[in-house]
Write a protein that binds this DNA or RNA. Sequence first.
DNA 1: TATGAATGAGGCTTCATTCAT
DNA 2: GATGAATGAAGCCTCATTCAT
Lengths: 193, 193, 193, 193
Amino acid sequence: MDSERAGGPAVLDRRQSLAQAALEKIAEKGLEGLRLRDVAAAVGIDHSTIHHYFATKEDLLAAVADLATRPFWESSPHDGTARERLERHLDLLAAMIASRPELYAVLRELDLRAGRDPKMAAIIDAREDSWRKVLLDVFEEGMPSGAWAEGLEPSGTVELTIATVKGASLRPKSARRVIAQLARLLIRSSSAS
Amino acid sequence: MDSERAGGPAVLDRRQSLAQAALEKIAEKGLEGLRLRDVAAAVGIDHSTIHHYFATKEDLLAAVADLATRPFWESSPHDGTARERLERHLDLLAAMIASRPELYAVLRELDLRAGRDPKMAAIIDAREDSWRKVLLDVFEEGMPSGAWAEGLEPSGTVELTIATVKGASLRPKSARRVIAQLARLLIRSSSAS
Amino acid sequence: MDSERAGGPAVLDRRQSLAQAALEKIAEKGLEGLRLRDVAAAVGIDHSTIHHYFATKEDLLAAVADLATRPFWESSPHDGTARERLERHLDLLAAMIASRPELYAVLRELDLRAGRDPKMAAIIDAREDSWRKVLLDVFEEGMPSGAWAEGLEPSGTVELTIATVKGASLRPKSARRVIAQLARLLIRSSSAS
Amino acid sequence: MDSERAGGPAVLDRRQSLAQAALEKIAEKGLEGLRLRDVAAAVGIDHSTIHHYFATKEDLLAAVADLATRPFWESSPHDGTARERLERHLDLLAAMIASRPELYAVLRELDLRAGRDPKMAAIIDAREDSWRKVLLDVFEEGMPSGAWAEGLEPSGTVELTIATVKGASLRPKSARRVIAQLARLLIRSSSAS
DNA sequence: TATGAATGAGGCTTCATTCAT
DNA sequence: GATGAATGAAGCCTCATTCAT
C-alpha cells in the first residue's frame, strides 16, 4: 500500500520529467542536439539510469511525442455556436503558441521526424487525427447556419487550419496575428450570425 | 579570372553538388542524420576532401540553406492583374511542393534551425523577406480593385500566406488542396470569377 | 537442521538452478556472452536477486565449474577386467558427449579459463586429478595381463586419454568415432578380440 | 612508387600487428577479456583508429583467426617415408605448442567460438580441412607399407590425431608427452619398417 | 586537389554491483 | 528473500576535423 502510493507515482513522475526534460532540450538544441546525458543531468540522475525508464533513445522520443501531443482541446467546452467554438479554439491555440513557443517548435520537429520515421508517424498521426475530428465537427456544424465564409468546404478547411497553425508556430512572434487573420477569413463577416 | 575559367567553375560545381547532396541527405535522414561522410560518398569523393570545399559542417549547412532558399519567384512574370499574379504564385508553390517535397522538408528543417542558430536565421530571414515583399506587393496592388475577400489586411495576409504554405509543406500530400483552399478564401468570390 | 528442512533445500535448489542456467548460457553464448541478467531471467528472478545467492559473478562461475565437473565416473562399476572397465568408461564418455555436447563445450571453456585464473584452476584441477586417478588405476591394473597395446605407458596414456577426450569434445559430431579409434589403439588387438 | 613502397606494407603491418596484439590479449585475458582499447594501446594508437583497419570487433577477430590458423605445415617437407613425415609433423606440433602455448590457447578459444559463430566456423573449418588433408595423405600413404599400428583406419585416425593435438594444447605442459604417446601408438612398433 | 591515417571527444548502451525498501 | 532504482565504469563505435603526403 505504502509502496504503491510512494513508488507508483514517483516512477511516473520520473518518466514524465525525463520526457519533459528531453522536450526542453529538443526545443533548445533541436533533435540533432539531443543528448541523453543532458536530459539525465537536467533531472539530476546518472545518464545510464535513463535506460531504466526508456530502453532506448527512440523510446524516450516516443514519450516526448506523447507528451507534446497530449490533447489540449479536451478542455475546450462543447457549448456555444460553431463560430464561437472555432474562435475559442483558435484563440486557445494562439495563446498556447505565445506562451509555450518551444513546445510548438518541438511539435514541428516531430512532424518532420514523422516524415521519415514510421513509429513517430504513428504517434503523431493518431493525435492529429483527433484534432482533425474536432475541427471537422466544428466546421460541419456551422455550415447550415451560414457561419462561414462563402465557398468554404469543411474538410478542406480543416486541412487549411491545421496547416496554418503549424506554419504559424514556426514563427511564434507573428503566430497570433496569423491565426487571427485566418479566423477573419473563415468566419462570414457580414450580415446574419 | 583565371581561376574562374580554369579551376573556378569546377570548384563551384563541386561545392554546388556537395550542397545538393547534403540537401538530399537532410531530406532523407533529417538534420540529425546528416553525416559529412555520406555527403562526400554521394558525390564520390573522400570524406576528408570535403573540407577543401567547406571548412566546417556549419559552412556546408549555410550552402545548403542558400541553395534551398534560392529565389524561385524571380521567374514569376510581373504582368497580369494582382489576382492573376497571386493565383500563379500559389499555383507555382503548390506545384513545387508536389514535385520536390524533400526540398520543402529541408526548408522547414532549416526554419527550425534558424530558431536557435542566428547564422542560419540570417540566411533564412533574408530570403524570406524577399518573398514577403513579393507577396506584399501583390496584396497591396489588389486592394484598390477589390480583388480580395472582405476585411483582408495586406501585411497580415502576407504572414498568413507564408505560414500556410509552410504548414502545408509539412504534409506534401495535401499541400495542393490546402493552398487551393487558401486561394479561394483570399480572393473575393462575388463579382464574377 | 531447521534451515535444511525449511529454507535450506530451497536455497540450494535456487543456487543449483542458477548455476545450471549459467551453464546453459555459457554453452549458448560463451563465457564472453554470459550475463547475470540472462541467468536471472532464465530462472525467473530479478537480476539483482541473484546476488543473494552469489555475491559475485565469479562466485557463480565457481558454482558452474563445480556443477560441470561433478564426477560422473563414480557410477562406473569397479568390477570387470581392466579392458572392460576402460571400454565402459570410454563408452560412457562418448555417450555423454553425444547427449550433452553443451556441457562439454562449457568444460572446455572452463579449461581455458583455468589457464589464466588460479581460482578456476583449483576447481578444475581437483576434479581432473580424480579422473586421472581413475584412469591410472585402470591402466595399471591391465598391465600385468597384457591388456594394452605394446609400448603403452600407464601414466602417459592417462594424459593421452584425457587430451583426446577433451579434444574430441570440441567436435561433438565426431567424438564417438575419435574415442572409438582411441580405444582400438589402446587395447591389444591380438590374443582373441 | 614511393608511396607504394612506404604506405602499402605499412598498412599491412598495422593490420597485422593489431591482429597480433589482439591474439596476445586473448591469450592473456580470454575472448571475454578482449578490449579494443587494450589492443590499440598495445600497438600505440588511439583506440578509435582501430576502426580504420577493422570496421568492427568481429572483423578484428576474423583477422586474429586468420593469423592464428595460418598454415604451419606448409613448411613440412613432403619427402621421406610416411612414418617419417608423421613423426616430423607431430614433432613440429609438439615443439610449437611448447614454444607458443598462448597461440594454441587462442586457437582453442576460437574453436569454441566457432561452435556458436558461423563466420568464425567458416574461417576455422577451412584451415582445419587443409590440415585434415595433410594428415589423410600421410596416413593413406603409409597403409600399404604397413607403417601403422594394426587396425588403424586412415580417416578415423586423422580425426583422432586432430582431437588429441587440440586436447593436448589445452595443457601445454604435458603436450609433448601426450603427442609422443600418440605417435608411439600410431606407428607399428615391431618388425618391418 | 585529393587522400588516408589519425585523433579525441563524445554518443548510446550494457552490466555488475549496491542500496533502500 | 526479493525488488527496482540507481550507479559508474566501461564498451564499441561514430564523426568532424586535422595533418602529412
